[in-house]
Write a protein that binds this DNA or RNA. Structure first.
Lengths: 190, 190
DNA sequence: CAAGGTTACTTCAAAATTTGAAGTAAGTTG
DNA sequence: CAACTTACTTCAAATTTTGAAGTAACCTTG
């Protein structure tokens, strides 16, 4: 729609514009996946990137709202994402960097705020005293649990049947591929 | 992997971790889509969100690099995304807001910088003098074209065969669904 | 047609996030 | 042990995002 025609593009079915969330038949895309859709528009690299940016924005504001509901105001949504990334295992800052492709100084900054808020504990590793071991505290686990509870409703809406599950799975894997392609390109040059 | 077991989650095949970009058989997922994968882990709402966040970060840094290569330093990657969102049609600020789910003041800020850099023109609409009509200038179109050229390489890597195309299509549509679900939840409350 | 409301945007200041350069301290290696 | 690397932290600056408060044009309704 936006881009002009170029080689190596991705075709995507149109008319998924103003559909209600309650029902979304086009997305389910039962048998259509194996033939070319009738009306196709072109989605490039950038269309995907823009979509991802938009969805990310949406999610961030959703998370902000959830956290406001929970009365959390000492850390922001970005810090909550880091907390969720840590999960229930003890790990080092380096491992955390890999998990989110954060920049080091960025994580340091977030961890400081999470530690100040009492959401995580930092313990210097016995083995390697440079390496800080990070663990979610009781309070942090409580926040995660509350957020997961709130998220359950979305999981139920998003994953209603086997088709939904398959599509979410494919979306997840495809995003992972994008992550690798874009990441490698950044490191080694296309 | 991170979250504890909860109802209404999404199953996703594991072991797509350290695969080369050059070949990515798991992603192609030819016939597996219709049966349950052998090894499954759980992906929640938040796993997806974290993936999206990571991929978005990756893309932003890629775009930053591309722009540095092109010698663009008067606008940042966020402004470039807005430029790409405008595309080759003339539209109003309001329409642009819809395209990217931006916040009004945010777009205003970006448009100001894009206008200062000579990438867009703003003309007050004849019909409604409140409404500013936005159009990409020659210079702006040049930047878009350069970015699209650079993006062509990624399109070729990402969309190699019919399976890739189908998966990218499904990913795009699924992201769109996420966008709607999360967006509606934000507006009307789950 | 004028008062009051709405729409379409802009401006501004403050906050949040992200970057990048420089630092520190602990390991590692020759 | 000196030099290098690793693992992280700190700090200042840039960028991005928010939210409140404008402004001007449009649209009612009396």
């Amino acid at each position: 729609m936006i881009q002009t025609l170029l080689p190596s593009e991705v075709e995507v079915e149109t008319s998924i514009g103003d559909v209600e969330v309650a029902d979304f038949p086009e997305i389910t895309a039962k048998k259509q996946a194996h033939r070319h859709p009738a009306h196709t528009v072109v989605v490039t690299h950038f269309e995907l990137a823009r979509m991802i940016e938009r969805v990310n924005r949406r999610f961030a504001s959703l998370l902000r709202t959830e956290m406001a509901k929970l009365g959390i105001d000492d850390v922001g949504p970005a810090q909550a994402m880091v907390l969720l990334a840590i999960g229930d295992v003890e790990l080092s800052v380096g491992e955390l960097l890999d998990r989110g492709h954060y920049v080091g100084s960025n994580i340091s900054y977030y961890l400081k705020q999470l530690a100040d808020g009492g959401y995580i504990d930092r313990v210097a590793s016995q083995r390697d005293k440079r390496s800080a071991r990070i663990r979610v505290t009781e309070k942090g686990e409580q926040l995660c649990a509350n957020l997961r509870d709130a998220g359950g409703a979305y999981n139920r809406i998003l994953a209603r049947d086997a088709d939904d599950l398959r599509n979410l799975e494919i979306a997840f894997q495809t995003l992972h591929r994008l992550e690798l392609v874009w990441g490698n390109a950044a490191r080694y040059g296309i």
